[in-house]
C-alpha cells in the first residue's frame, strides 16, 4: 500500500507530467484559459490515461514480449491510444451525451497528446505491473489536472492584472508556466524513488 502511495504522490507532485517532465505542454497552454475547460480537459486526460495504461500494459506484456517485438512499442502504443480514444468517444456519445458534450473537442485532441504516449512508455521503462501502472496513470492524470487547474486559476487572475503591454497574452503565460514549474521543483525531496 505504501508503495502505491509513493507512486501516486510522485506522479502528482514530484514528477508532475506537465511541470517536471514537460509532457502535454500543448493542452497546458491551450486549454488553461478558463477553469471549467481546464477541469474538463484534465478529467478527459485522466480517463484516457488510465484506460490506455491498462491496454498498453496488457498488449506489451502479452503480445510484444512473447514475440520479441519490443521495438514496435511506440507504433503499437499510438495505434492503441488512437483506437481507444475513438472508442471512448463513440461509447460516450451513446451512453452519456452530457459527458460527451462536456469533454467536447478535447477528447479527440487527446489522441495526439504526448502525455499519454509518455505515460505508456514510462510504464515500460519503470517495469510497472498492471496494478502499479494503473495507479501511476491515475497519479499522472491527477497531476495533469492539478497543473491545468493552477495554471487556469492564475491566468484568470492575470486577465485583471496590469501586465506590461509586450508581455500580454502568451508571453506572460509562458513566464507563469516557468515560475510554476520552478515552484514544483520544491517537491523534489519529498519522495525518494
Amino acid at each position: 500500500m505504501g508503495e502505491f502511495l509513493i507512486i501516486l504522490v510522485s506522479a502528482i507532485l514530484v514528477n508532475n507530467f506537465v511541470l517536471a517532465r514537460f509532457l502535454g505542454i500543448c493542452p497546458f497552454l491551450g486549454v488553461s484559459k478558463k477553469t471549467d475547460t481546464a477541469l474538463g480537459m484534465g478529467m478527459a486526460v485522466t480517463f484516457v490515461m488510465t484506460l490506455a495504461s491498462i491496454f498498453t500494459n496488457l498488449i506489451y506484456n502479452q503480445v510484444l514480449i512473447p514475440f520479441h517485438l519490443e521495438y514496435l512499442q511506440i507504433v503499437t502504443f499510438i495505434l492503441i491510444i488512437a483506437s481507444l480514444v475513438q472508442l471512448v468517444e463513440t461509447v460516450l456519445r451513446k451512453t452519456s451525451p452530457a459527458l460527451y458534450h462536456a469533454l467536447g473537442i478535447y477528447l479527440p485532441l487527446i489522441t495526439t497528446n504526448c502525455a499519454i504516449l509518455g505515460l505508456a512508455l514510462l510504464n515500460i521503462i519503470k517495469n510497472y505491473d498492471l496494478v502499479r501502472s494503473i495507479v501511476f496513470a491515475l497519479g499522472a492524470g491527477i497531476g495533469f489536472t492539478l497543473a491545468l487547474l493552477i495554471m487556469s486559476g492564475m491566468r484568470e487572475r492575470l486577465e485583471f492584472a496590469d501586465v506590461p503591454k509586450v508581455l500580454r497574452g502568451v508571453p506572460i503565460a509562458l513566464i507563469v508556466a516557468g515560475l510554476l514549474s520552478m515552484a514544483f521543483m520544491g517537491f523534489s525531496g519529498l519522495v525518494k524513488m
Binding site: 503480445v63 514475440f67 517485438l69 514496435l72 492503441i80 483506437s83 472508442l87 463513440t90 451525451p97
Partner: peptide, 25 residues
C-alpha cells in the same frame, strides 16, 4: 511484426466498427 501490427490494427478496426454500429446515435 507485419502480422502482429496488422493483426492488432485489424482487431481494433473491427472493434471500432462494431462499436460504431452498436453505439450508433
Amino acid at each position: 511484426p507485419l502480422i502482429i501490427l496488422g493483426g492488432l490494427g485489424l482487431l481494433f478496426s473491427v472493434g471500432l466498427a462494431y462499436a460504431s454500429k452498436k453505439f450508433a446515435v
